[in-house]
């Protein structure tokens, strides 16, 4: 077993376990802000998963999915912050 295979074998269960923890936070989270932060974290972890998947499938085209997820997660979090701020003002 090479080093890369061992790294994949270790990293995928860690990513899945952290995603499950974040899903728990999205479902239970006491306030709306907690849920927004957890959703942003899920997107960031998904980028890590896409990177690992591009190593497994040995293709660089999958990495562009990670770029798009990063940009759209930033946009989504900004939009959530915009509406949260407007809600707290009124």
């Amino acid at each position: 077993m090479s080093f890369v295979e061992m790294a994949i074998f270790v990293s995928i269960p860690i990513i899945i376990a952290s995603m499950l923890l974040m899903l728990y936070r999205v479902a239970v989270g006491p306030s709306l802000e907690d849920r927004v932060v957890a959703l942003d974290l899920i997107a960031t972890t998904a980028i890590g998963f896409v990177a690992v998947y591009s190593i497994i499938s040995n293709s660089t085209t999958v990495l562009d999915v990670g770029i798009i997820i990063a940009m759209l997660a930033f946009l989504g979090t900004t939009a959530f912050a915009y509406y949260l701020e407007r809600r707290s003002k009124t």
């Binding site: 940009m71 759209l72 930033f74 946009l75 900004t78 939009a79 915009y82």
Partner: peptide, 10 residues
């Protein structure tokens, strides 16, 4: 269009 949406938010 996501780029323009970001610009319209900012």
């Amino acid at each position: 269009s996501a780029a323009y949406a970001l610009y319209s938010i900012a």
